[in-house]
């Protein structure tokens, strides 16, 4: 069968809402778009562990210590699930774990803007857990019906774990909001630091060429702007109910359009930061990941050389 015909049949499957498996025929374009997307998702989980990880040793109670440890552990676990999906998807192209990870150092893959930013206080850990995770949950939940079945399956598991993350993040910020004046100020300061990054997180409002193709393939179905609007609807009232001020004087809900109006973040600045890894913490965190990976190649090499020991001896 010629590839044009195969392509047409594939698109018919997509239009009928069928799910694509790793072993199915798929256009190169679909495979590559998806691979890039899932790799960025997986890598973002792994790089996303760092800003919160900084607060693991400093968590202010034993219970918080346990909670944040297990939360960051989940992020690594999500990275693992996603990288495995990417590895199988990319196998026909010779893609391996090694490559997916080293792409971070060479800049061939990107990670979300929020994970390039500094998290200087405990309240930042709270805001990451509450709002950055909230934003991530909105965008991940929007992918649950993605056309690529292996991705959809791990997203289901990821979202189930995210429901703990939501409560964990809220628990931290509730304590700060219920707390002393200094704690509340710490929370407000963190919100001020993260707001622009949160708005940028969903990406620019215009639909890029690759986003258009991904929507055609039903890899994703919602636009950046739709997701941002959902996020604002859910979270702005909550932020305000805590007595916090959203650091955007223009932010309001326009009844006539049914949409939130917000000040545009500096798209160019954030875009450059993600593209060139020039955020305040980009290089430091990439260096950590590089050290973990390259600096410990000897461990992985040794483990493949050594013979197995059965469980239970």
């Amino acid at each position: 069968m010629d590839s044009e015909r195969l392509h047409e049949q594939f698109m018919e499957r997509i239009r009928r809402g069928e799910k694509i498996e790793a072993t199915d025929w798929m256009p190169d374009d679909y495979r590559k778009l998806l691979l890039k997307f899932i790799q960025m998702h997986g890598v973002s989980e792994i790089m996303g562990a760092f800003p919160e990880k900084e607060w693991v040793p400093k968590a202010p109670t034993l219970r918080r210590k346990l909670g944040i440890m297990s939360k960051v552990q989940d992020e690594m676990g999500h990275g693992q699930l996603l990288l495995r999906v990417a590895e199988e998807l990319g196998a026909p192209l010779g893609v391996t774990r090694e490559q997916l990870i080293t792409d971070i150092f060479t800049g061939r893959t990107k990670f979300h803007n929020v994970f390039h930013m500094a998290s200087p206080t405990w309240a930042d850990a709270g805001v990451i857990g509450w709002l950055v995770d909230g934003a991530a949950i909105v965008s991940q939940a929007a992918l649950l019906d993605t056309s690529y079945a292996p991705y959809a399956r791990v997203l289901k598991r990821i979202c189930a774990e995210e429901s703990f993350h939501m409560q964990h993040g809220e628990s931290i910020i509730l304590s700060l909001a219920e707390g002393t004046q200094a704690q509340r100020q710490m929370l407000q300061d963190a919100l001020n630091r993260w707001w622009d990054s949160l708005i940028f997180f969903f990406g620019p409002p215009e639909i890029s060429e690759s986003a258009r193709r991904m929507m055609e393939y039903r890899i994703r179905e919602k636009t950046n702007e739709e997701l941002r609007q959902k996020f604002l609807s859910r979270y702005v009232p909550r932020i305000r109910s805590l007595g916090l001020t959203v650091p955007d004087p223009n932010l309001h809900f326009d009844e006539s359009t049914g949409k939130w109006v917000y000040t545009q973040p500096d798209w160019e600045k954030f875009g450059r930061m993600v593209r060139d890894n020039t955020g305040p913490k980009s290089q430091e965190r990439i260096a950590l990941r590089r050290q973990a990976h390259e600096g410990q190649a000897w461990v992985r090499e040794a483990m493949t050389r050594s013979t197995a020991v059965p469980v239970g001896v």
Partner: peptide
């Protein structure tokens, strides 16, 4: 042990080792 979070030699081990620290 928790200082290894995000820095273990394999992603899979990162997850397993974190349960031990917890």
């Amino acid at each position: 042990a928790s200082e290894w979070l995000g820095l273990a030699p394999e992603i899979e081990e990162d997850v397993a080792f974190s349960s031990i620290s917890q």
